[in-house]
């Protein structure tokens, strides 16, 4: 499998480590009234589509950046690769 790193170009997937769904970026607010439920859902509940998914990959043997990879689980086609930092910032994450 090849992941087209936005800065480095195409790299073999062997350089990367998979973490899980990109929804892991959306870590809930620890001070919310519903924090216990929010964290439970965040940690355990997932959709499992046959088709396009957004995944978190770590370029461990490369530039150490986390990437969000949009990949079709049926055809293996990768249609988008973004720096996870950019995705997080765009989602309003800060400190």
């Amino acid at each position: 499998m090849i992941i087209n790193h936005p800065l480095l170009g195409p790299r073999d997937a062997a350089e990367f480590v998979y973490l899980g769904d990109a929804s892991l970026i959306d870590r809930p607010d620890w001070q919310s009234d519903t924090a216990a439920d929010d964290f439970y859902e965040y940690q355990y509940l997932r959709d499992n589509p046959a088709g396009e998914t957004r995944e978190l990959w770590f370029h461990e043997q490369g530039d150490r950046s986390w990437l969000v990879v949009t990949r079709n689980t049926l055809t293996h086609e990768i249609t988008k690769v973004e720096l996870a930092r950019d995705v997080a910032l765009a989602a309003g994450r800060d400190r």
């Binding site: 978190l56 770590f58 986390w66 996870a84 930092r85 997080a88 994450r93 800060d94 400190r95």
Partner: peptide, 19 residues
Amino acid sequence: AVGVFRHMEFCRQCLWPGM
């Protein structure tokens, strides 16, 4: 060692990119 570093980079880049 390797797993903790990976985890910390995840926190740094994905959870708290403003730090």
